[in-house]
Amino acid sequence: MLSDEDMIKSIMEGDRHAASLLIRDTEKLVTHIVCKMITSPSDRKDLMQDIYLKTFRYLPGFRFQCKLSTWVAQISYTTCFDHLKKKRELIDLPGEDEDNAHQQIREDTLDASQQLSIKEKSEILESLSVTLPPIYRTLITLFHKDELSIDEITSITGLPVGTIKSYLFRARKMLKERLLDYYSKEDL
């Protein structure tokens, strides 16, 4: 396993293997960010290309202030954010006072739903989070799925710790309410 320093050195010397290793190491995280922030498949392709081209271009300027993967994720987030801003798809983030009334649900329904397959759970979450603001979707995935710390997410997104915590709180709450609604309807 190459260290970040060795990997950068090899890439700068024109080592293709090191370049593909960097792509493979960071692809999962970058895909998560891109897919959570961007919905159009063609835009996703362009942005993935753009992100890695930027990564290779700015690699000589990497100052080792964070992990290389965090730095690549930071480029991914900024690139996607700029894309959304350009396309004016950055919708206003909802406040905390969202309607939280939901149907009554039986506890055993939730217990039963724990037994769903990974694919089913993934599909349900996708349908629930589709209308969530892109930033919320990304933060939820980075924190809960990729298990990044709040500090790492701060490095990636450039958002203050308080804002990230607040966004995460709101996103979880919204998703929980949608989940309860979903299962109450299923239950009916």
Binding site: K28, T31, H32, C35, P41, R44, K45, M48, L110, S113, Q114, I118, K119, K121, S122, I124, L125, E126, I140, T141, H144, K145, R172, L175, K176, L179
Partner: peptide, 14 residues
Amino acid sequence: LLYSHIKAQELPAL
């Protein structure tokens, strides 16, 4: 349940 759903998220197929 929500956390388990998030954990179960599959990497989107590109």
